[in-house]
Amino acid sequence: MWPKRSDELPLDTDVSDAPWSGLQGGEDDREPASRRVNASAILLAVIALLVIVIGALALNYLTSGTDPVTLEDETTSVEGETPGGTETTPDESAEPTEDAIDYPEPTIQSVTLLNPQAANLDPSTVDSQDNPGSVSNVFDGNPATSWSSWWYSDPAFWMKDGIGLEITLAEETEITEVVLNVDGNGGLVQWRDTVNAAPNSGQIIAEGAMSAETLLTASEPVVGQTIILWFEDLPTANSDGLYRIDISEITVR
């Protein structure tokens, strides 16, 4: 027979020497599961708290020293900037336009006869052709006095392309209209943008047939001090029906 196993040990036997002692563990040798769970939760809570603190410190650093942002309506514009965002700067160096200049009233200072082809007609009468001595009557303010050219058998003159008048103003000003009071009708007078040395050249500013009140009006104001009139064809005089120019007054406006 096999000997019967007894769970009881002799009183003098060391428990650690028992043959089954290594197979059984006591409750004191194992950590309770609830204690391990509590330690993990505490660790996670500490990590979360550190993340919150670090995040708060970083946010405070990034936002410190900055001004509050204010959103404005896109249609609102500030001075010096257009609604589209393009900055505009007043041009302080821009010169005033001619329209803004306060020009003086035109005043005639002198009128001179221009007869560039007088020698073609008669070299001996160059200084007296077409009565240059009475030209000043056209701006003396007296309608009873006048200047008359020589009379011609042809309204297109003869041996000449025409004659002219140079009107000199007291100072440079803006000119829009020249008025001729003519005792006659027909012919052709031109207001030209030219000089006295070439009175029948240059751009024609205005032209027309002559009458009691001949108006030569520029399409836009002309700034200057000199006006050149060129008579290409002669009118028929009212007094005797001859081809000649008879002007009592010239007015510049």
Rank of each mutant, 00 (worst) to 15 (best):
T236W: 00
Q109N: 15
K4Q: 11
L188I: 04
I163K: 09
V78M: 11
L242E: 10
V138W: 00
T76H: 14
E72I: 05
L113G: 09
Q190G: 05
A198M: 08
L180Q: 07
G187R: 00
E213Y: 00
D122C: 07
E79D: 15
L43D: 06
G224Y: 07
T251N: 07
E232G: 08
R253C: 02
V37S: 07
A212K: 11
I250M: 04
Q117V: 07
A18K: 02
D183N: 15
N131T: 02
A48D: 00
S146F: 15
I247D: 06
S40E: 02
S40D: 01
L49F: 13
E81Y: 13
W2M: 12
L59Q: 03
E166D: 05
D7S: 06
I245N: 05
L234M: 13
V78P: 03
L215C: 01
Y103S: 07
E72M: 06
M159V: 01
A33K: 07
I101A: 09
E166G: 10
Q24W: 07
E98D: 14
P96T: 12
E92V: 13
R253Y: 12
L57T: 03
S34V: 00
Q117L: 06
E87L: 15
P106L: 06
S219H: 03
D28T: 02
M1Q: 09
G224H: 12
L169T: 10
A197D: 14
I54Q: 06
A198V: 03
S219L: 07
E172Y: 02
N137P: 05
D67M: 06
D233L: 14
A33F: 12
A45L: 01
A41R: 12
N60C: 08
N38W: 06
L71D: 13
D183I: 09
W158T: 04
I47M: 06
E8T: 10
D161W: 02
E249M: 02
D99W: 01
E249W: 00
D99S: 14
L188W: 02
R244W: 07
Q225K: 15
A94P: 12
L113H: 11
V51K: 03
L165F: 00
E8Q: 12
A206G: 11
E172C: 01
G80M: 09
